[in-house]
Design a protein around this nucleic acid. Structure first.
Length: 214
DNA sequence: CATGGGATTGACT
DNA sequence: GTCAATCCCATGC
């Protein structure tokens, strides 16, 4: 995939070991791939990112495509902020603002592998099975208690934090496919999944289905 | 000010 | 596979 060495060097870490603004200031496709394996933490719960999607103002599926509005201004702001919005009137979806300030782009966090605080996740989701807790963009925000109030918050400073991937993730080749649930620019292969992950949302990319038969 | 669409999920057929 | 639930906000009258 991308050059992991260059990405790691470019992705400066803040003192608390969260990923810093220079990590997010890069091309949104690079960030979407490099976020696989990173850890989203909020309160006592945390999970490993196993699925992302990239959005950029140049294509119509991105909220920033319409330009600068009260709703989208966060997307054009400094990289490394959280963009949280309500989807279908029901779910809060978590994004990481990317590219330099002035460019509207973000990575949607679509699925996590539960890592810590699993019982709290179960309580908030009202479900038991591990694979059902964070296997979707609306599920993971419910599991981690992420709501609209965190829109514009700093993903390095918290309260929601994204931490670097554990060693070894830079060698993992993401499975790319078309983005899910959109009608515009649906042909772009800007969805990225970690191969072998059990908590990827549906529909699973064909490449993952093959890996999981037997 | 009214309207309509959307980056979803879960229940049901 | 189909469909309803339900809310923010952009757009247009």
């Amino acid at each position: 995939m991308t050059a992991p060495e260059a990405s790691r060097d470019a992705g400066a870490r803040s003192p608390d070991l969260s990923l810093g603004a220079t990590f997010y200031a890069r091309p949104v496709l690079d960030v979407a791939r490099d976020l696989l394996g990173c850890v989203v933490r909020h309160g006592d719960s945390a999970g490993v990112i196993v699925e992302t999607e990239a959005y950029h103002q140049a294509e119509a599926a991105c909220h920033a495509h319409v330009g600068l509005t009260p709703r989208t201004h966060i997307l054009f702001g400094p990289p490394g902020l959280a963009y949280v919005y309500r989807s279908y009137g029901i779910h809060a979806l978590l994004n990481a603002v990317c590219e330099p300030e002035g460019v509207g782009a973000a990575v949607l966090i679509r699925a996590l592998e539960p890592l810590e605080g699993v019982d709290a996740m179960r309580a908030r989701r009202g479900l038991e099975r591990l694979e059902d807790l964070c296997s979707g963009p609306g599920k993971l925000t419910q599991a981690l208690d992420i709501e609209l109030e965190f829109n514009g918050s700093d993903l390095a400073a918290g309260p929601i934090r994204i931490e670097p991937a554990a060693p070894g993730w830079e060698e993992i080749e993401p499975v790319a496919g078309p983005r899910i649930g959109i009608t515009k620019a649906a042909e772009l292969p800007w969805r990225f999944c970690a191969p072998g992950a059990r908590s990827v949302s549906r529909p699973r990319p064909p490449a993952l289905r093959v890996l999981r038969t037997r």
